[in-house]
């Protein structure tokens, strides 16, 4: 199965082509708005480099968020139209799952992985994973929370906190870098911060996870694929913007 993986949901973004388990091509860069707009160009280049044409694809994988609203919309819209025009199944991938999947077999002795994606102010999008095998197993709900609360919730005294004797938590994602100081302040010895090379979702990982979704028969179509904004509903958003004067401010970048 030939799958194109697309990610524009966070501060890194890119495209990958996989054929079965093989990564045929992968491009990733720190994203600005202008290079998320050039995503179609990257797709075109990778396809040409691989000697594929768009109709050769068997599926599309895409990160649906949470992350940058505008970024998510660019990726999801591209995936919808590619899926529609090429009549392909689409494998949606939650961005947090994709980041956690960068760290397979990392939970040997009860370790947890906690991706943090920067949202507004001190908020992060997060979930907790046990990654003892090749794929992450999520053990919490997806949530948007204050970063300090997230870190504190792992303290061994807290309800649901870690067992000091056998558990550790690894924070990854751009939120871990942005809020490093808060994490170090609030954390105790059982906390680690992942290195920079595993902070963002990798397009090839997105393609692999999306392929699993498609193969398990849970693919979305161009019509029902939805962004996963997580957090304020659009109505709440609107009231917030209306209060602050509405106008034509760019929301959610």
């Amino acid at each position: 199965m030939r799958v194109m993986g697309i990610d524009t949901s966070t501060f890194t973004g890119g495209v990958a082509l996989v054929s079965g388990d093989e990564i045929v091509a992968e491009y990733s860069a720190t994203i600005t708005r202008s290079n998320s707009e050039s995503l179609a160009c990257v797709c075109e280049r990778l396809l040409a480099g691989a000697g594929w044409a768009a109709p050769d694809l068997d599926g599309i994988a895409v990160t649906v968020g949470p992350g940058s609203f505008t970024g998510v919309r660019i990726g999801v819209t591209m995936a919808k139209v590619l899926g529609y025009a090429l009549e392909l199944p689409i494998g949606p991938v939650v961005t947090l799952d994709a980041i956690a999947a960068n760290l397979p077999f990392s939970g040997g002795t009860g370790g947890l992985v906690c991706p943090l994606i920067s949202a507004r102010r001190n908020l992060v999008y997060t979930a907790t994973y046990r990654v003892s095998g090749p794929h992450p197993e999520r053990v919490s709900d997806y949530a948007v929370r204050c970063v300090r609360d997230v870190v504190r919730s792992f303290r061994s005294g807290e309800p649901g906190g870690l067992d000091r004797n056998r558990e550790r938590v690894l924070f990854v994602g751009d939120g871990a870098r942005v809020h490093k100081q808060v994490i170090l302040e609030e954390a105790d010895a059982m906390v680690a911060i992942g290195p920079d090379w595993c902070i963002g979702p990798r397009p090839a990982v997105v393609a692999a996870l999306g392929r699993l979704v498609i193969e398990s028969g849970k693919a979305s179509t161009a019509y029902d694929l939805e962004p996963f904004y997580l957090g304020r509903s659009s109505a709440e958003m609107a009231r917030g913007e209306a209060r602050s004067g509405g106008g034509h401010a760019q929301g959610g970048l």
Binding site: R73, T77, E226, P227, A238, A242, G246, G247, H248
Partner: peptide, 21 residues
């Protein structure tokens, strides 16, 4: 809201783009 709210508009565009095409 008495006017166009950008985030609401963008979200709706994503929902409607395939049906419109």
């Amino acid at each position: 809201f008495g006017g166009v709210v950008p985030e609401v508009a963008s979200r709706r565009h994503v929902e409607m783009i395939i049906p419109a095409i």
